[in-house]
């Protein structure tokens, strides 16, 4: 366990050297793969290429929201405010990629379904996710970042929201459905050509790295903000005294 923590912190120590070039490489590979390498889809045509960003964005958004959930539990457990900074950073990135998923979905939906938006089960539950975590960000931004009570309130909300996701998905699915059935992992292997799957895997890695980098950047910015505020408060007290 301690070995794992040591490795993780060593990896985190070199983040400025490793993450930016890896992210650049991953995103470049994603763009090249989606635009050049992947074959033209025979039925849907060129617009299908948006899928290589759409699907990784959706998975990455879920991943980021899972980070919010874990960081919120850690905050309530340890009362260490650094977890709150991570939760807020991950929530911001999660909301960003949820919005990205909806936007790329709309771009694809217009030529294929004939509409940008429809009240299909997955679209609706993704929209609710956006509203949930948008509300979380709004609530946290209205309170002082150093306010521990507000941080705990946000954490409890985030835990509740994450636990709500399966129920939302189920209730909305019973409500209605139109989204294409899962293509990637069927019961008898992937239902698409191997080079498409390869591009998709590259997309997952690229978008995942990008999200990780964004979360790290945001969390550090939040932490610096909290520290600056504390220093300023101390300075004010000294001048006042």
């Amino acid at each position: 366990m301690s070995w794992l923590v040591g490795q993780a912190s060593r990896l985190y120590g070199v983040r400025w050297v490793t993450l930016p070039p890896l992210v650049g490489l991953g995103v470049f590979a994603l763009i090249a793969g989606a635009l050049v390498v992947a074959p033209r889809e025979s039925v849907e045509g060129e617009v299908q290429r948006v899928f290589y960003i759409h699907f990784p964005s959706a998975l990455t958004a879920y991943g980021a929201l899972f980070v919010v959930f874990l960081a919120s539990i850690a905050l309530l457990w340890t009362k260490d405010m650094r977890w709150d900074a991570i939760a807020r950073a991950a929530a911001g990135v999660g909301v960003l990629f949820t919005a990205f998923t909806l936007a790329t979905g709309a771009i694809w939906g217009r030529p294929i379904w004939g509409v940008y938006w429809t009240w299909d089960a997955r679209l609706t539950s993704t929209l609710i996710l956006l509203l949930l975590y948008g509300g979380y960000l709004l609530a946290r931004s209205l309170a002082d970042p150093t306010d521990e009570q507000a941080a705990r309130y946000g954490a409890v909300f985030a835990i509740f929201a994450f636990a709500d996701i399966p129920v939302i998905n189920m209730s909305v699915r019973w409500w209605r459905t139109l989204h294409p059935q899962p293509m990637v992992v069927g019961s008898d292997g992937p239902a698409m050509p191997i080079d498409m799957v390869a591009v998709l895997v590259i997309g997952l890695i690229g978008v995942g790295l990008l999200a990780t980098w964004l979360i790290v950047l945001r969390a550090e910015a939040e932490l610096l903000g909290v520290r600056t505020q504390a220093l300023r408060a101390r300075l004010d007290r000294r001048i006042g005294a």
């Binding site: 509300g135 509740f160 929201a161 939302i168 209730s171």
Partner: peptide, 9 residues
Amino acid sequence: VLTLPLLVP
């Protein structure tokens, strides 16, 4: 804004 999305189900 916080309560209503939680209560969609």
